[in-house]
């Protein structure tokens, strides 16, 4: 393989420089997850070109000041009977947006449950942001700002106030999440490089970035999946 430049060593331009991030949206049935995504991805070009399955699955290319990101936003099922399918959807995600309705205390409780579950299943691998949605209905608020923000802080998540209706806070929440994910990815990459130097194993590094350390063991690619 080492004499084969095409197989394993894409040049510095092109796709190799962009990162793929998967973001899942979690939250109860009618908290407005779907409209959040619709609002975020809505623009005149997306209608047929980018958006494929309306709001349930959206891809978006971002360029954060030179950092190229392919963002894949996965909506999840809100109905209780599909709850058990959560892990299938959120495995391998880099980030999660947990949405609740500020006028609905139960939906906030659900967010807490989701976070508990995510922490249990994925540890700290995943970046969490919480969205208090429907702030256009401020007068009916039942979840207090303080409670929500304190809770978010306690679990290491960032809290945002959003409204799909008046298009408030949506751009920010996705942008911030992207920065969080980049930070985490960079940190993981650095950690792996350190551990690589210690252990001398090349296997893990391939998963992170295959330009820096050319693959020496072909088979390892089979198991990498992010």
């Amino acid at each position: 393989m080492d004499d084969d430049t095409m197989a394993d060593n894409p040049s510095a331009t092109g796709r190799s420089s962009s990162q793929n991030f998967k973001v899942v949206l979690l939250g109860e049935g009618c908290v407005g997850k779907t409209s959040l995504v619709l609002r975020y991805t809505e623009d005149k070009f997306n209608d047929k070109h980018v958006s494929t399955l309306q709001a349930s699955f959206v891809k978006k290319k971002l360029n954060l000041n030179g950092r190229r990101i392919n963002l894949a936003i996965w909506d999840t099922a809100g109905q209780e009977r599909f709850h058990a399918l959560g892990p299938i959807y959120y495995r391998m995600s880099n980030g999660a947006i947990l949405v609740y309705d500020i006028t609905d205390e139960d939906s906030f409780q659900k967010v807490k449950n989701w976070i508990k579950e995510l922490k249990k299943m994925l540890g700290s691998e995943i970046c969490l942001v919480i969205a208090g949605n429907k702030i256009d209905l401020e007068k009916d608020r039942t979840v207090s700002v303080e409670d929500a923000e304190n809770y978010a802080r306690s679990v290491g998540a960032v809290h945002f106030h959003t409204s799909a209706k008046i298009n408030s806070g949506i751009e920010e929440i996705f942008l911030n999440l992207c920065y969080l994910m980049i930070e985490k990815a960079d940190k993981q990459k650095a950690d792996h490089l350190v551990s690589l130097n210690r252990s001398g194993s090349t296997r893990r590094t391939i998963i992170i970035d295959d330009e820096d350390v050319p693959s020496t063991e072909g088979s390892s690619r089979w198991c990498c999946s992010n």
Binding site: T34, L53, Q54, S56, D75, A77, Q79, F82, L85, Y89
Partner: peptide
């Protein structure tokens, strides 16, 4: 399945 349906959610899909 979605066929341009604006309200096509994951629940519907599943």
């Amino acid at each position: 399945l979605s066929n341009g349906n604006k309200n096509f959610t994951v629940d519907n899909l599943l």
